[in-house]
Structure formats: C-alpha cells, structure tokens
C-alpha cells in the first residue's frame, strides 16, 4: 500500500476537476480532462500493488509448482489501466477535434463566447 500514490492520485483528480471548472480556454479544459484520467489511472494501478511482488508474467507450470499468492502484483488492475489509458487517449483526441472545428466556426476558443445555446 503506497500512500503517496493514493494521495497523488486524488490530488491529480482534484486538479483536473479544478481545471475543467474554472479555465476559460477550451484547450485548457481538455487538458484538465486528461489530468482527471491520469489521476484515476494512477489510482487503479496502485490498487493492485502487493508489497514485494514482481511482474505478473508466469507460465502455468510455474504457478502449479506452488508459488504463494503474494509473490506477484495483481494483473487485473493493470489490464483495467491499459483500457482506461486507451479510452482517455480517444476522448482527448475527440475533444481536441471538436475544439479545432469550434475554432473554425466561432473564431474563438474562449468558453465565455462559445455559448450560442443557452437559457
């Protein structure tokens, strides 16, 4: 249980949320979105950590020879994190594509001016 990981993960999450909620430049908002994702990825990876464990790459024969369960780190959160990283990359790509199109149409990326639909 590495405490620092968890603290930093929560910190990144809060920083990302702060960026999304207060920044006016749309690109900074997308950056904030990315930071939220990285924070959560760090959280997921840290959940699977076992003290003194090694990377979870084994063959069946090694496992059947009776190695204790604390010997390797949990592989499932690593799989979850990989999925989440890919999803984060796609979300960022789509968000940036939308920002580019918004710039072409609205000639600005200031959130206070990109608000034709309101009320």
């Amino acid at each position: 249980m590495i405490i620092v990981n968890y603290v930093v993960a929560v910190l990144l999450l809060v920083l990302g949320l702060y960026a999304v909620c207060t920044q006016k430049n749309l690109i900074k908002v997308v950056l904030g979105l990315g930071i939220i994702d990285y924070g959560i990825n760090l959280l997921i990876v840290s959940v699977g950590f076992n003290d003194g464990g090694t990377a979870p790459i084994f063959t069946i024969s090694d496992l059947l020879n009776g190695i204790s369960s604390n010997f390797f780190v949990d592989p499932v959160p690593q799989a979850l994190t990989l999925t989440s990283i890919v999803i984060g990359a796609c979300v960022d790509a789509m968000a940036l594509a939308l920002v580019i199109m918004i710039y072409r149409k609205y000639k600005t990326v200031n959130a206070d001016e990109v608000r034709r639909i309101r009320g």
Partner: peptide, 26 residues
C-alpha cells in the same frame, strides 16, 4: 459543435467518477 463538446466534457466527468468507483470496489 458546442453541444457535442459540452456533452463530451460532462459525460467524461461522469464516466471518470464511475471508473473511480469501480476501482475502489475492486
């Protein structure tokens, strides 16, 4: 375009919360 962008941002915040919850449940 702006509707799509706002939908993406708020939707992503929601999904991130769900993912954090799933991580803690795991």
């Amino acid at each position: 375009l702006e509707a799509g962008f706002k939908y993406l941002i708020i939707g992503s915040i929601g999904s991130s919360m769900t993912l954090a919850g799933i991580a803690l449940l795991y």
